[in-house]
Simulated assay, not measured.
Amino acid sequence: MPTLETLERFIAQVEANAHAEAVEAFYTADASLQENQEPPRVGRDFHVAKERAVMSRARSVTSTCVRPAFLNGDHVAIRWIFRFEWADGSVTRLEEIAHQRWEGERIAQEQFFYDPQQRIPVPRALD
């Protein structure tokens, strides 16, 4: 079960757009992440590389935790809003709920729930 302090450090790191660093610091080596009902992807190193690849394609990123975050034993639920401005000027705004299962002070399993239509970039003028 994570402490409230650990959860707050995790949220702060994501809000600072240090996504890959948050994965390195707060996920187990064999962490499982799942997008909606897609098959889970396993392995912290894989997720770190994926986060770095996404962040390298973005001109700017804003990551916001919509409070409150919910902590109940080993389970955490966080509502996030992410705004990515891409190199071509298009924008992706993604609002999701992340449901996490922690083992001690690290995330072992996470599933994201969001409307996949949000992943389609829109021209900046329409953002």
Score class of each variant (00 low, 15 high):
M1V: 11
P2E: 01
T3W: 13
T3A: 08
T3E: 07
L4F: 04
E5W: 07
L7T: 07
I11V: 14
A12M: 09
A12N: 10
E15F: 09
N17L: 14
A20K: 05
E21S: 06
A22M: 15
A22Q: 13
V23R: 05
V23Q: 05
E24N: 06
A25D: 11
A25T: 12
A25K: 13
A25S: 13
F26E: 04
F26H: 06
Y27M: 03
Y27H: 05
T28L: 14
D30I: 07
D30G: 06
A31E: 04
L33G: 00
L33R: 11
Q34Y: 07
E35W: 06
N36G: 05
N36V: 13
N36I: 07
Q37H: 08
Q37C: 03
Q37P: 00
E38V: 06
E38I: 03
P39N: 05
P39M: 08
P40C: 15
P40F: 15
R41E: 03
V42W: 12
V42S: 07
V42D: 02
G43N: 15
G43P: 03
G43D: 14
D45C: 05
H47P: 03
V48G: 01
E51M: 15
R52L: 09
R52N: 04
A53Q: 15
V54N: 02
S56Y: 05
R57H: 02
R59N: 02
S60K: 09
T62A: 15
V66A: 03
V66E: 06
R67C: 04
P68K: 09
A69K: 01
N72E: 04
N72I: 08
D74N: 14
D74C: 09
H75T: 08
V76K: 04
A77S: 12
I78R: 03
I78F: 10
R79V: 09
R79M: 09
W80D: 09
W80I: 13
I81P: 00
F82Y: 11
R83C: 02
R83M: 09
R83D: 03
R83I: 13
F84D: 00
F84T: 00
F84G: 00
F84H: 08
F84V: 07
A87R: 11
A87S: 08
D88G: 11
G89Y: 13
G89V: 10
S90L: 01
V91G: 00
V91I: 10
L94Y: 08
L94T: 04
L94G: 03
E95C: 12
E95S: 15
E95G: 14
E96R: 15
E96N: 13
E96S: 15
I97H: 04
I97G: 00
A98V: 06
A98I: 06
A98M: 10
H99D: 00
H99L: 12
H99A: 05
R101E: 14
W102S: 04
E103Q: 13
E103P: 02
G104M: 14
A108K: 12
Q111C: 08
F112W: 10
F112L: 12
F112R: 07
F112P: 00
D115Y: 12
D115L: 02
D115E: 08
P116K: 05
Q117D: 04
Q118L: 11
Q118F: 10
Q118H: 07
R119F: 10
I120R: 12
P121E: 02
P123Y: 08
R124Q: 08
A125L: 13
L126D: 04
D127T: 13
D127I: 11
